[in-house]
Structure formats: C-alpha cells, structure tokens
Simulated scan of single mutants.
Amino acid sequence: MTERELDAPLIPKADNGVLDLGGTQENVIEVIIKPYDEINKGDKITVRFDGLGGQGTFLRYAYVTDADLFFAGKDIQIRPLSVFSNGPFNVTYTVESRAANISSSKPLGITINNAPDAEVNVQYHQATYSGFYLEGLIDSWIVPFDYAISKNSDVLISPLSTQAEQGNPTLILSKRTQASGTSSAVGTLAYTLGKWAFIISDSPITLKKGDELSLAMISDGNLDLAVTV
C-alpha cells in the first residue's frame, strides 16, 4: 500500500471558510475533488466531514466510473443537510484504488452556519447510483429523526435504464444502532422476476435519530437507479 498527500477538497459555496446552509437552495453541499495522479476506473473516494466541536462525523462515498472524464475534477453531492449542525468542520477525502493503495487529502477547514432542522427539512434519504461499483459499501447516511420502515414499499427503487445494461446486482441495506454500535442487515434490494424489489428482513425496522443506514453491493457490478429510503 502506498500513501501520497492529495490536494484539499473544494466547496464552492463556502465563502471565506463559512458555509451558510440557509442559502443552499439545492439542498446539497457540493464538494469538488481535484484531478490527481494515476486516476483509474473503480477508485473509491470517501469524503469525510469531521466536527471539531462535538458535531460528529459524516461520510459520503463515490466511485470513479470513467477516468477520462476526471480532467475537471469530480463533483460529489452531500445530503441530507439535516445531519449537520452549526460549528467548525475539517473536510477531507481519501482515494482507495482497486489495488488497495490509499491516499489522503489535506484538510479544508470550514464553519457551518444556519444548519437546518432535521424534522422540518428532511423526510427521506434519496440518492442516485450510476456507474460501476465494487463489492462492499457504496453509501451510508445518518438517520435524521425517529421513524420506521414497516413494509417493503417503504423503500422505493426507480431504475434509470434497462436492467439488461446492469446485470443482476443485489444490495444489502444495513442499520448501525448509535446506542450500541452494533450493525445488522435489515433488508435486500434485488432485481428478480423482471423488476427491482426491496425485501424487508424483519418488520418493522425501528430507526432512531443518530442511527446509521448503509447500502452495500454483494459483488462488483453496474448500477443505474434511484433509491428512496
């Protein structure tokens, strides 16, 4: 494994180190990863927001699907905004190649102001997954408030292209409980009988504010779909 220091990420909406979430009309934080040496398809990029005043840590994952399109950098959208609270953060990222070489960036220091109220601004986690993904974790997010997933239809899957282009990938939805730190699989997203379906493991799935949900691929494959949890 090799290590090299990468340029700090960019957050275009941050003004002199201050990110005003009250003025973020798109309901996302845009993080730009600059081009780096030896970019390859399948590189895993992990963006990390580390709170410096007890706000906690937030991670977002992305993959390089086409190295030739990375000349202008990669735009990674961070949501939901409700996971953030006001205060100082260090923003960094790591790049892990398929050969398990890991490089880390310099930190970008920002201060978040006007963080939204989770109960008012967020009802679901919505994300689009498009491109080639490696086996393992592809996304994770913090539950912004107490709620439950009580039936299969509570997780919506919207294909963005024909399944013939994607193969037959399967994803596992897991929950990590904040109180105990334990993690367990709670459902499966799979393409069967000509359509996508979510199969709940145990109904209902009770979620508490601060718990973590994550999606993982059981094998390498292509995805082109939107998921609402």
Rank of each mutant, 00 (worst) to 15 (best):
Y93M: 04
V28G: 00
V91I: 05
G109M: 07
D66A: 11
K208L: 13
S214R: 11
G87Q: 01
S130H: 10
V95K: 07
S104P: 00
S158F: 12
S180M: 07
S82C: 02
A185P: 10
I149T: 08
L6G: 03
L225A: 12
K175Y: 04
S180N: 12
I142A: 06
F71S: 15
V91D: 00
A118V: 04
D224P: 03
K151D: 11
S201D: 14
D139V: 03
S150W: 00
A14L: 00
A226E: 11
R98M: 14
L6P: 06
N222I: 12
K106E: 10
I218D: 12
S104R: 07
I112M: 07
I78L: 12
G51I: 07
K175D: 03
V83I: 11
P107W: 03
A100I: 09
P35W: 05
D154S: 09
L223S: 07
G194C: 04
V95T: 09
E3R: 13
K175S: 08
I142D: 08
R79D: 09
S97G: 15
L225Q: 10
Q166V: 13
T228Q: 15
E212K: 15
I39H: 09
A185H: 10
P107G: 04
R48F: 02
A164H: 12
Q178W: 13
L21C: 09
I110L: 05
Q163K: 05
S219D: 15
L193N: 15
I199V: 14
V120Y: 11
Q126M: 13
